[in-house]
Amino acid sequence: MSKFKVVHYINQFFGQVGGEEMAHIPAEKREGPVGPGLAFTKNFGDDAEIVATIVCGDSWFNENLELATETVLDMVKEESPDLFIAGPAFNAGRYGVACGTICDAVQTELGIPVLTGMYVENPGADMFRTKVLIVSTADSAAGMRRAVPAMAKLALKLVKGERIGASVEEGYIPDGVRRNFFDKKRGSTRALEMLLKKIAGEPFETEYPMPTFDRVPPMPAITDMTKATIAIVTSGGIVPKGNPDRIESSSASKYGSYNIEGVDDLTSETYETAHGGHDPVYANEDADRVIPVDVLRQYEKEGKIGKLHDWFYSTVGNGTAVASSKKYAAEIAEKLISYDVDAVVLTST
């Protein structure tokens, strides 16, 4: 039986090109295994072989994400492999992101099984754990000796189309897919052991982590609205006509602060939405539909509220990373506090 063909992706360091000073090198392809690939070859035995290794600088990949992905993808395609492996990247952040990115692309574009490995706290793990299988490794290359056999074993299962066991059995970082397996002890005994650890204050691992909801305790109610300053913050992408800050229509990399002193009504001539995730017609016709400047201004005149804050803050929620949103929110919150804003109307689309 012929061996399964494997292409391996590693960074400049494991490719023995050099350290950080060589992180700028573009992707290059070499025949056969290189560096950790030799260890993989040993573990694959007669089942699979590394036919080519792609060595790529971490900076070059991360700074030229689209080009790099395309370049590496083409290199992989030329070999028509049965399997693609990247890393292990351990705790190297840019290496981890590169491994995740290229595995995801190969899996999607070429439809072959992919596998990478990294430390659970590598930012690449959080970004890609639900997209590609990532074997959990130690945080440094000292863990290579344990990482490679675990990765090789799982890789062979993948390429042979065998059933993948649960994360605890196979050693990958939980990927959001619940898989059954037979544990060594019955559930009641596991419960008792977990309880004893919990009582003793020792670390224990739940078998089902509860979905986490970012709950925010509500602030005390405003007692006198007639004196309150109200601000508007939106993820609905409302911007002055022409989108002066070039807020992206999805995965926004920024938010904008816009002055509305003296603005009583948002019109189709003055405001629009930058949001690419919904039909913009009605927002562009009248942006008050997304952020109620007109109504709040009227309330201000009627004395129902103290004041409408002079600025509104806007970003696009469409596919924008939670981490980015949190960063924008923290900055916006500081501004709101510095202006003594009492309450905020938050709108989204």
């Binding site: 897919v177 619940r178 898989r179 596991r190 509860m210």
Partner: peptide
């Protein structure tokens, strides 16, 4: 758990972060 045939759905019909020690009989 009832996480769907693909194992991707939310397993329980209720949740709370205080339930931090869970033993499961499987999906």
């Amino acid at each position: 758990e009832y996480a769907g045939q693909d194992g991707k759905s939310q397993s329980l019909a209720d949740a709370d972060e205080l339930a931090n020690a869970v033993v499961t009989g499987g999906n």
